[in-house]
Write a protein that binds this DNA or RNA. Structure first.
Length: 360
DNA sequence: TAGGCCATCTGGTCCT
DNA sequence: AGGACCAGATGGCCTA
């Protein structure tokens, strides 16, 4: 079948996207084998998978000029619990029918591939607009959908309540239902400012952790550039570079005013691995002996932000998700449709509203 | 090596 | 009739 696919110019582009196919001759052979087997042996496909009734399959077998009907009812449905198959009886696979079936199946496969590619493209676009995006460490499909759902929910709650959200609740909402690795990834992306947010407590095992609810000071909205190795969760880099660089800005410093960040480095270096450990919705602060003030400053709860090259990062009161900040250089009219979004593109105008919360 | 994730193939079903 | 959608099966790749 693949050889046929490759010989069909109309199908070639989709197939060639998956170079693995073309390169893996073993796989190709096995697939061809499967294909031939499936086509020539309809019984095999009957046994595979589908629990749906077969009573209505009118499609392929009806179209034929060949009126011969195979006597195969006896061997089906009688033995075991298999229900007797109804519907049109199978017709003999003449060479002509085999060929037509192959062509039809090949076209259907190409369409299905295209459809799945479109679906994956949409998922990629979705990955770019959820709070944690990395080209190198992509969220899985299911985790992308879960995070997107949580993100929508969290934003809705902010709009609905009209209050500054509690940062822990926000993160908990985002991470709800996510796997542990993804939770840690998101938590790493949404850098919490431990000094501003967390109140350290003593754990039962003597370890210190932070917990509780606290008011939001430094609010989101910059996603660490996870494609940067320094920004990978688990990174223990202690670079003094500030997260608010190039394309990735933290929103602003805390309202407490912990000073202006550095913006000079030509190379963005993402914040360090977060001091946050999230476990089943419980948040604790990892103890890092090297928690320098610089590091603390770097733990900003953050999301995507599209930093304009050469532009100044937002000041202390310029939320990155907002388009109203005069210094942010971001205006709602510049917001691109989601399908055109790329890394760190601006977000939807809803951020204007959200932004208002943090300009009080 | 087991398990998770993914791409692909496939047949059934529904819709136009 | 044909296309879209769906879900099961399968095999490959990667990672803990």
């Amino acid at each position: 079948m693949l050889t046929r696919l490759f010989s069909d110019p109309s199908l070639l582009p989709d197939v060639q996207k998956y170079s693995g196919w073309a390169e893996d001759s073993d796989e190709e052979d096995s697939k061809m084998k499967d294909d031939d087997q499936d086509i020539q042996d309809d019984e095999g496909s009957e046994l595979r998978g589908s629990s749906r009734t077969h009573s209505e399959h009118a499609g392929e077998d009806d179209e034929d000029d060949d009126d011969e009907v195979e006597e195969e009812e006896d061997e089906e449905g009688i033995e075991g619990d298999m229900p007797k198959k109804r519907g049109p009886k199978k017709r003999k696979m003449t060479p002509a029918r085999v060929e037509r079936t192959k062509v039809r199946r090949t076209k259907a496969n190409a369409r299905e591939r295209t459809r799945m590619h479109d679906l994956n493209s949409a998922l990629d676009n979705l990955r770019k607009v959820v709070p944690c995006y990395s080209k190198t460490q992509k969220l899985s499909k299911i985790e992308t959908l879960r995070l997107a759902k949580n993100y929508i929910w969290a934003l809705s709650e902010i709009l609905r309540s009209g209050k500054r959200p509690d940062v822990v609740a926000y993160v908990q909402t985002l991470c709800k239902g996510l796997s542990q690795p993804t939770t840690n990834l998101v938590a790493g992306c949404l850098q919490l400012n431990s000094r501003n947010f967390l109140t350290e407590q003593q754990g039962p095992d003597g370890s210190r952790y932070a917990s509780g609810s606290f008011s939001m000071h430094s609010y989101p909205y910059q996603c660490a550039r996870l494609s940067n190795p320094h920004c990978q969760p688990g990174s223990t880099s202690t670079s003094n570079s500030h997260p608010l660089r190039t394309q990735g800005y933290s929103t602003y410093d805390s309202y407490g005013g912990s000073g202006s960040p550095e913006y000079n480095s030509p190379e963005y270096e993402a914040p360090l691995s977060p001091p946050l450990c999230v476990n089943n919705g419980n948040f604790s602060l990892k103890q890092q002996g090297s928690a320098s003030p610089e590091n603390e400053k770097g733990y900003h709860y953050s999301m995507h932000y599209s930093g304009l090259p050469g532009s100044r990062p937002p000041g202390p009161h310029n939320l990155v998700f907002g388009s109203s900040g005069a210094r942010s250089g971001i205006h709602s009219e510049n917001v691109v449709p989601y399908h055109d979004m790329h890394l760190h593109h601006e977000r939807a105008p809803v951020y204007d509203e959200l932004n208002a919360f943090f300009h009080n």
